[in-house]
Design a protein around this nucleic acid. Structure first.
Length: 228
DNA sequence: ACCCAGGTGGCCC
DNA sequence: GGGCCACATGGG
């Protein structure tokens, strides 16, 4: 049966949004990391912290020879703390880093390929069981370190999606399901989609606080709104 | 002196 | 299930 060829205007908004973002911002080349382990460390440090500081913390670890599962698992807490202090939450993040590495050793002898070589759901549950790993961190690790195609949701995704009327919820799982049921489950595309949403958020945040000048007319003004 | 950053876990109702 | 809070550093 020859199904009618959909013009771009009749495509799902979620796919159309991806195409507009990609056309405007271009490929983002995410995640900025050398290898899977560096992605994991970055994901654990990134929470509620500017990437600039995370990058510096990772560089510190790298120069200290600690950007490796076994080394980090064995490093004394004060040493780890000194290197990652710049990434904030220095009383919680170092312990999470070290404990996560110890878990990797227990689970797969520190072999990340082996660690990720299970079904997406199984790995995701295993990640979520670790201290400091919530849905976003788990999915960023799955997507960018493990090569598992999951749609990564973050505060930007929810803000943009709500403001342009894609959905009306803050619930992580619901937003994820929203995209996963409308966007083909493709690893490269899911990686790019999330990176593009962040690129758009950052582009919008700085120069144009209001959406009137949004380069791709998404009408999604930014700012978190008052807290407290 | 604020407000924010690619969250998470612990409470409370 | 949803809403609030502490956590902590550095930059605008």
């Amino acid at each position: 049966m020859a199904s009618p060829c959909p013009s771009s205007s009749t495509l799902d908004r979620e796919i159309n949004l991806f195409q507009r973002l990609l056309r405007h911002y271009g490929p983002q080349h995410w995640w900025p990391a050398q290898d899977a382990f560096e992605v994991i460390v970055g994901a654990l440090l990134m929470q509620q912290t500017a990437w600039r500081n995370v990058a510096e913390a990772i560089q510190n670890l790298k120069e200290a020879g600690l950007l490796e599962v076994r080394a980090l698992a064995a490093a004394p807490m004060p040493v780890i703390r000194r290197h990652v202090k710049i990434a904030g939450l220095y009383r919680t993040k170092p312990k999470r880093l070290r404990d996560f590495c110890r878990h990797l050793l227990n689970r797969s002898d520190g072999d990340l390929t082996r660690y990720f070589d299970r079904s997406t759901d199984v790995v995701r549950d295993d990640l979520l069981a670790q201290d400091g790993v919530g849905p976003e961190t788990a999915d960023s690790i799955l997507l960018y370190a493990g090569g598992h195609p999951v749609f990564l949701v973050d505060a930007y995704t929810i803000r943009i999606g709500r403001r342009i009327g894609l959905f009306d919820t803050n619930a992580y799982d619901d937003v994820q399901k929203h995209f996963e049921t409308r966007v083909p489950r493709d690893l490269a595309m899911y990686r790019e989609y999330h990176a593009l949403l962040v690129a758009h958020a950052k582009a919008l945040c700085r120069p144009t606080p209001s959406c009137n000048e949004c380069p791709i007319r998404l009408l999604c003004d930014f700012g978190r709104g008052r807290k407290r």
